[in-house]
Write a protein that binds this DNA or RNA. Structure first.
Lengths: 113, 113
DNA sequence: ATCGAAGTTCGATGACCATCGAACAGTACA
DNA sequence: TGTACTGTTCGATGGTCATCGAACTTCGAT
């Protein structure tokens, strides 16, 4: 059925992923760097992304960005123990917007300020 | 040479087109609708885009959006007579980010509010 | 139970942005 | 030479966003 929401109402279903929201989410260099990181390294937890991707921000700020990426339908979150693991929804994005994520990830990564 | 600016210093050279700026420019539904219009109809002047694309905004606001699209390297402007004609920089965008524009334009267009 | 670690939520703040009306600068035409 | 049209520039305004510190919750380990 259309319009179905996920468990906690944050992550949209595949058919509800909206292009402007995806583009807005990826337009932020820090969020783009985070997405690049999980695309290359696979499922990662928050502190790992912040540190190893070199994101110049605190945990509250990253939590804010994570929410935007989830609400856009770009990443999904899985909780295990005390950690929250995030991963790229590649199949869903490919189904909704074929070629979009690949062309974005193929672009040269700019250094995060 | 790298870093070269265009005639009026607004439109970037091909190698200076930056991905976050392109994504931010296309993240606005009104700008995306304008880009879709010129991609489908070819070179068009401002009043034509506003009216025929059904953009709910005044001329000053469209001029603002046009500037952002030009600064992002998405469209170019040509002045003839009293009119300013805008067109999509498809070849430059394809060279810089292969497949990006095609995947965006291939997505279903959402009605402009 | 206690302590530390992982993330989230909650204001608050400063910056940026979309929007408009008014005024302006060109161009075309009568 | 006016007159009408095209589009830009200039404040001003209301809204959204990225950022942080502080406080909180949950989990794991001691």
């Amino acid at each position: 059925m259309l319009g179905t929401v996920m468990d906690d109402g944050v992550e949209p279903a595949v058919q509800d992923i909206a292009l402007p929201r995806v583009l807005a989410a990826l337009a932020d260099p820090h969020r783009l760097a985070a997405v690049r990181f999980v695309a290359r390294r696979g499922e990662s937890w928050c502190a790992q992304v912040i540190e190893e991707a070199g994101l110049p921000m605190t945990k509250p700020t990253f939590s804010h960005h994570l929410r935007i990426l989830r609400e856009a339908g770009i990443v999904t979150k899985r909780i295990q123990g005390a950690r929250g693991y995030m991963s790229l929804r590649k199949d869903d994005l490919d189904q909704r917007f074929p070629g979009l994520i690949d062309s974005i990830l193929a672009a040269d990564a700019e250094p995060v300020s």
